[in-house]
């Protein structure tokens, strides 16, 4: 592979990423690469800094040092909503839906990113506005149908079951039409069956929408089952990287998880 081909194939590239909270270095000198249409797992024991990495990528935290390139351009210093507009969407470890809005509206809200009209459109309510709302509604329903949520479209998000809420959060993130989807512990609180469904779902999303996925997960079964590449963090430092098999056999990883 030539050098330019490699660069074009890199979707997200973080270099020497460091952040400190007071005296604690939560993430230290982390290099992270995610290629196009790749499913990468980020694992590590409790408090290893996984969610902090998410918050750095999505602009919630600013790194003390280091650089994050997305599609060849830096996202450091951008506001979270701008980063989302550029193609990084996320879900949350503890579900954060718009609880009083309906399932339909939860997804519809995100489509404002792709609106051509603005406030004036909404106030004038002319042909252009109605057409655009109609096409958005069609796309929302299409998305809901793919994930079998269309029957619940008018239900308030807070009334959904736990598993449906998780799925709705993923659908909502996909409505932003991201190039990179960040999933923060999607399997948390799920039983074995639900985990199997989730693994299938993530695989399906990656293939169907042709996007990259970065998966933070506690659950080894899920991560080992679907990720092409795994990065292991411990105390904010990358201790291993490789295919599931390589990582599984790595003595440092075993030590981090089971203790020396």
């Amino acid at each position: 592979m030539t050098a330019t081909a490699t660069i074009e194939n890199d979707l997200l590239k973080a270099e020497r990423l460091t952040i400190r909270f007071g005296g604690l270095t939560a993430v230290s000198n982390l290099d992270l690469l995610i290629r196009r249409n790749e499913l990468v797992g980020l694992i590590g024991p409790n408090g290893a800094g996984k969610t902090t990495v998410f918050n750095l990528i999505t602009g919630v935290y600013q790194p003390a040092e280091g650089e994050i390139l997305f599609d060849g351009q830096s996202v450091v210093g951008s506001k979270p909503y701008r980063i989302t507009a550029r193609g990084i969407a996320r879900t949350f470890q503890n579900i954060r839906l718009f609880s009083s809005l309906s399932v339909f509206d939860n997804v519809r809200t995100v489509f404002h990113l792709h609106l051509r009209g603005d406030v004036r459109h909404a106030l004038w309510r002319g042909r252009a506005f109605l057409d655009e709302e109609k096409s958005i509604a069609d796309r929302v329903v299409e998305l809901l149908e793919i994930f079998h949520l269309e029957k619940l479209r008018d239900a308030p998000a807070k009334s959904l079951s736990y598993g449906d809420q998780r799925r709705l959060e993923i659908v909502r993130a996909l409505a932003a039409q991201p190039k990179l989807l960040l999933l923060d512990e999607p399997a948390a609180g799920m039983n074995a069956n639900e985990k199997t469904d989730l693994m299938r779902l993530i695989q399906f999303i990656k293939d169907r929408f042709r996007i990259s996925v970065l998966l933070v997960e506690h659950d080894m079964q899920v991560v080992m089952g679907i990720c092409e590449r795994i990065v292991v963090l411990d105390y904010g430092v990358k201790i291993a990287e490789g295919t599931p098999d390589e990582v599984r056999k790595n003595p440092k990883v075993v030590a981090a998880y089971l203790g020396d």
Partner: peptide
């Protein structure tokens, strides 16, 4: 409903 989620959703 959720300011953090709203910001993350663009």
């Amino acid at each position: 409903d959720d300011e953090i989620a709203a910001e993350a959703m663009g």
